[in-house]
């Protein structure tokens, strides 16, 4: 007697339906994956090597790249120095009114980047009190390198801070308490326990912040049209010379912004597997 014949009638059809839903889920996943990668595929298909070499070899063509990378590095440094302690305090609930603090960090996330840029003009523009104070320091938040950094910080801050908060929150308080009771003052505990355990999550947060900073456009176009970063370069080339001419710079932006995030994600995935344990 074959196994199928021994099953009651509904058993066989349930098996068929389970197999069918597995196949459907697999198909749907493949479709979504292809859709997400589609644009990258289109880039590689439509780009021509000769046009790329010409565009990137032109004098001054790589200046926007340098500007973008420099500004993003500065923005990232600002986020790490100012945002990491904030993220730790939020994770350990050491702040008063924690929900309000979290909402405040979320605000730039909820605003469209274009709106952030617009509001930054009214917040830091040369005509404002803060803008006046900045000019005493020989800084201007309008069409300067400083303005570019400011715009990138505002666009990337929620991603980094919330990601770092989640990374710190994943380190159980009991571990820090145990380290302290075993004799470590808080700086040693941070170095020996908190940071190593939070590192994968922090790397992910950093990578996300980097990708958002270097690709910032909405706020940048309002307060830092000049100096050109890569996104602005793509936009200007698009307007002046058409879509195809902008492709080489798009490729450049993809190449510059992807590696760090990919590395960070793969490292954090590997580390998480090793430390996923209930102690």
């Amino acid at each position: 007697m074959t196994p199928d014949a021994a099953l009651p009638p509904y058993g066989a059809s349930m098996q068929r339906r389970a197999r069918a839903s597995n196949v459907a889920a697999l198909l749907a996943s493949v479709v979504v994956w292809l859709a997400l990668l589609g644009p990258l595929g289109a880039l590689l298909v439509h780009i021509s090597p000769t046009a790329t070499r010409e565009a990137l070899g032109a004098p001054g063509a790589l200046t926007p790249l340098v500007t973008s990378v420099e500004a993003s590095l500065v923005a990232l440094a600002v986020l790490v120095v100012a945002g990491t302690p904030l993220a730790w305090m939020m994770a350990r609930e050491r702040l008063p009114l924690p929900r309000l603090v979290e909402a405040g960090v979320l605000v730039p996330l909820l605003m469209p980047p274009l709106v952030i840029g617009l509001l930054l003009v009214f917040f830091l523009g040369p005509a404002t009190p803060l803008g006046g104070a900045l000019s005493h320091l020989h800084l201007s938040a309008s069409n300067t390198f400083f303005a570019l950094v400011v715009a990138e910080v505002y666009e990337a801050a929620p991603y980094y801070v919330l990601g770092a908060q989640s990374a710190f929150a994943s380190v159980a308080v009991e571990l820090e308490e145990n380290a302290a009771l075993l004799g470590d003052p808080w700086r040693r505990t941070l170095r020996r326990v908190t940071l190593p355990l939070a590192a994968p999550g922090l790397a992910t947060a950093l990578a996300t912040g980097w990708a958002r900073a270097i690709g910032a456009f909405g706020a940048v176009i309002v307060i830092a049209y000049h100096p050109y970063g890569l996104p602005m370069q793509i936009w200007v080339t698009l307007q002046q010379s058409g879509l195809a001419a902008a492709l080489p710079f798009a490729l450049l932006l993809v190449l510059v912004s992807l590696p760090l995030p990919l590395l960070a994600f793969s490292w954090s995935a590997r580390s998480r597997v090793g430390t996923r344990v209930a102690t």
């Binding site: 009991e174 308490e177 145990n178 302290a180 009771l181 470590d184 808080w186 190593p196 430390t275 102690t279």
Partner: peptide, 19 residues
């Protein structure tokens, strides 16, 4: 402060450092 109290604490959850 915690690190100067010289208190040994053992809890139900071992709390070992996983890394």
């Amino acid at each position: 402060p915690l690190h100067m109290r010289r208190v040994g604490l053992l809890r139900q959850n071992a709390g070992l450092f996983p890394h």
